[in-house]
Design a protein around this nucleic acid. Structure first.
Lengths: 215, 215
DNA sequence: GTCAATATTGTTGTATACAATTTGTAGATT
DNA sequence: AATCTACAAATTGTATACAACAATATTGAC
């Protein structure tokens, strides 16, 4: 349980921004937020700083802080970067992951398979996350792991969409298999490439979606 | 010029932490800092939050914020991650960098060479930075670029050390040449590998230094 | 009616006052 | 002597008050 109200407020605000409650460029009014959360401006300002430092809002001195939803271009850039981070995790994990870690990957994959058979998208999504987190941890580089987790979290709302593409689940599953195979073989290059492609596809699917909306 | 005092204070504090003015684990006393900077606690607290969010300090609720100098293990992890980020930049830059960007790399390299001949370590350091920044920009991915710049900045105080290694400058220079060659050829794999090794060496040199201190 | 100068209002940045929690210490008790 | 308790001191977290600045509205001249 979080003790500081400011942190709780920051979390809530993050959720609100994620869920698209606030439009892009909208100003986050300190007074109104203070009133809404029934606190003074002080904890609100601290919470806003958290949003700013995570890139979810922009602060203009003497003007205020404004929500900053990433546009299509920046989103693609973030997906690209995510792909590279995961590729890096895979590269390290290939030679460093433990037996227990590999077992986790097996289990997660099995659960993914089961979720597909049950057409349970939400469960697939959850187990997919377990799978990727296990790879981050398998890199045995906690700094890299933290960076990967952070960016993955920021992309969360946008990744959910692409899983709805027809046939994507099965394809994704197949990619998982080849990733695990590469890790098992200790083939750093193969694991890295497989993960890069696996994540890059998500960006491409997202790109398709955007393009289809603009036509 | 920065308008908010809190931001100026944050910058100054970063410098102080970087320069080792504060020991690891030392508490950053709000009252004392407020007195030192001749401001109230409010801007101090905002500045401290900046340090916390950048990972240079840790906040324990109701206890205070404590400086958090990365230990040898975390530093190695950060160097590894930096190598992967630069490898990613190189991968993208190989197919995306502009003619102007390539020219910048040539110029920076020439200036590096000159700095070596003049035994001017500081100038080499500066031009080396220009070289790497040009590659980040060449990736044509501003999100990745920002991440690379951020981590590079955090590693700055530790990279300066390794350049003092005997013969490192000449070797580094040679690596730069092969990086540029790969980028010019548009060979993503080669550029990526060359950059990864180039940066990884820095981590290894640092590791050597640590090891030599512990014996 | 338009433009400029100025007053007004609203918002952020900073200072200060107060509340809540933790830490350290002195004294009592066993 | 050791430990527990109660109180005091110190420190952070929050609320409020004030100051500085930006945006807007108003007034006056032309």
């Amino acid at each position: 349980m979080e003790l500081r109200r400011a942190n709780r407020i920051a979390e809530t605000l993050e959720q609100l921004v994620f869920s698209g409650e606030y439009r892009n460029g909208e100003r986050l009014d300190e007074h109104k937020l203070a009133e809404y959360f029934r606190v003074s401006r002080t904890p609100i300002r601290e919470a806003l700083q958290v949003l700013v430092s995570s890139g979810m809002a922009e602060q203009i001195p003497r003007r205020g802080v404004f929500v900053r939803q990433p546009g299509p271009v920046e989103l693609m850039e973030m997906f690209e970067t995510m792909a590279e981070l995961e590729a890096a995790c895979g590269r390290f994990a290939a030679t460093r992951i433990s037996e227990a870690g590999l077992q986790q990957l097996f289990d997660a994959n099995q659960n993914c398979q089961q979720a597909i058979e049950e057409q349970d998208h939400d469960r697939y999504y959850a187990e997919n996350e377990v799978f990727h987190h296990a790879i981050y941890k398998g890199s045995a580089n906690s700094y890299l792991e933290k960076q990967a987790l952070q960016l993955q979290n920021r992309l969360k709302p946008y990744r959910k969409i692409q899983l709805r593409f027809r046939g994507r689940l099965a394809q994704s599953m197949a990619e998982h298999e080849s990733i695990v195979a590469a890790l098992q073989d200790g083939d750093a290059e193969k694991a890295s490439d497989a993960l890069r492609r696996h994540v890059a596809v998500q960006g491409e699917k997202f790109h398709q979606l955007i393009a289809s909306l603009n036509t």
